[in-house]
Computed example of a mutant assay.
Amino acid sequence: MPPSEDRAQAHTLEAFAAAILIVAGLTFALQATAVTPLSASTSNQHLENQQRAVADDLLETSAANGDLEDALLRWDPVNETFTDGRSPSYFTAGGPPNAFGEALNATFGERRIAFNVHIRHGSDNGDETTLVDMGSPSDNAVTATRTVVLTDDANLTAPGHGNTTLRALSNGSEPGEFYAADAAVGAIYDRMEVRIVVWQL
């Protein structure tokens, strides 16, 4: 066989081998998992831990200075809403217009972190009322909780209802209803669990 034919066959085999390598590389690349900003990683885990710690600190501080209790009591019993008679009965664009809401907005909203706030109450905290709903949390959402004890003589903080106590609503001496029923014996009205869920937008 002439040397030119040998070289031609060698070039053909090299081209064939190169094509196989290219196809194999593309197949591997397509099957590989894409890395996105929301993929699990050490940095994302660190960010989630940081957000959880911030949410815990916010709840602790707000509970200590009374802002959290004030937010739980910002209820219009006649219209049965947190939002001064507007619909829906919860906030969707940020925190409520009080010190707790301002803390939520400053801590999370200004950093493009969405948050939901839910209040669990009743027997074994089996019932839930929404205070803030900014949407569906992502898979990377984190949660922080805090228990707040409301007493029978606690006054509502909603505009126009500041002289209404939980006891007065419970025994029917004031019109309307609180979102949580009196679930405790004695001077305690209920032990409410406040749950914050936060996630990066």
Score class of each variant (00 low, 15 high):
E60R: 07
D153Q: 06
L156Q: 08
L150V: 07
D127R: 05
G122Y: 04
L156V: 04
V117K: 05
Q51N: 11
E48V: 12
I188D: 10
E177Y: 01
L38S: 12
A103G: 04
R120V: 00
L68E: 01
A63R: 14
F100C: 03
S170I: 03
L156C: 07
L73I: 08
L59Y: 01
A8H: 07
I113M: 05
L47M: 12
E48D: 15
Y189H: 11
F100G: 01
V117C: 11
A183P: 05
F28K: 15
A55W: 03
R74H: 08
W199Y: 09
A144E: 02
W75K: 12
T107K: 01
P159M: 07
V35D: 12
A187R: 13
L156D: 06
T129Y: 07
E110C: 05
G109W: 09
R111N: 07
P96Y: 04
A40R: 12
T61M: 01
N49V: 08
N105C: 06
N98V: 03
V197Q: 14
Q45R: 05
S39A: 13
D84E: 15
F16V: 09
D70W: 09
N140K: 00
R52G: 06
L58R: 00
L30P: 02
T83A: 11
M134Y: 01
P159R: 08
E69V: 13
A34R: 11
T151E: 10
V197I: 13
L13H: 14
E193H: 12
L166C: 12
T165L: 06
E48P: 09
Y179H: 03
G109M: 10
N125A: 04
S170R: 03
T129I: 11
M134C: 05
Q31T: 07
E174Q: 09
D67V: 12
A184E: 12
D70C: 04
T157I: 04
L104A: 03
E128Y: 04
P96K: 00
T61N: 02
L68I: 07
T42A: 07
G85W: 00
G135W: 10
L166R: 02
A106N: 13
A64G: 10
I188M: 14
F115A: 04
G162H: 04
L26M: 11
P97Y: 01
R195C: 10
G101P: 01
L68R: 06
F28C: 05
G122E: 13
G186F: 10
I22G: 02
T61G: 01
T81Q: 12
G109S: 13
R146H: 13
R111F: 10
A18N: 14
F100A: 00
A53W: 05
G126S: 15
R86L: 10
L38F: 12
G101R: 02
D57W: 05
A17R: 11
L166F: 03
D124P: 02
R7Y: 06
A158R: 00
L47K: 13
N65T: 14
D124S: 15
L201F: 09
T164C: 06
L47I: 14
D84Q: 11
V78D: 07
N65Q: 12
V35Q: 11
L21W: 04
F16N: 09
N171Q: 08
L156P: 05
T164K: 02
